[in-house]
């Protein structure tokens, strides 16, 4: 059984808040889901079962042909919610 406090704690870990009015329903639904995925406990398997690994090697491309500096700057900075000139503006961290 999961409690309201558990949900609040998970929410704070996930940088979310669950509105007070929704907490009861949320806990109930969450319990139902945990019960469902809890059937995994009954599954008789060894934790070191051999994974199926795709026969894919050296997937990194060769370095080279960097994009010229500034190519995407305007596109990316135009999406900033808050900015000063070309700089992303955020609240004081410390």
């Amino acid at each position: 059984m999961i409690t309201i406090d558990d949900v609040k704690h998970l929410a704070s870990l996930a940088r979310l808040s669950v509105p007070e009015a929704e907490l009861d329903t949320f806990v109930k639904e969450f319990d139902g889901i945990l019960e469902y995925i809890g059937q995994l406990e009954k599954l008789p398997i060894f934790m070191d079962s051999t994974p199926v690994v795709p026969p894919l090697h050296n997937v990194f491309r060769e370095d080279g042909e960097p994009t010229p500096v500034g190519t995407n700057t305007k596109t990316i900075t135009s999406a900033f919610p808050h900015k000063k000139g070309k700089l992303l503006s955020v609240k004081k961290i410390l």
């Binding site: 996930a14 945990l34 934790m47 051999t50 994974p51």
Partner: peptide, 27 residues
């Protein structure tokens, strides 16, 4: 809901029971 569920199955007390078990079952 799914973000909280994901946070739960990855949290230190439950990662073996859920995430790692699921990963093994996947294989």
């Amino acid at each position: 809901r799914r973000i909280l569920l994901g946070t739960f199955v990855l949290s230190s007390g439950y990662i073996d029971a859920y995430y790692r078990k699921a990963h093994a079952a996947r294989a």
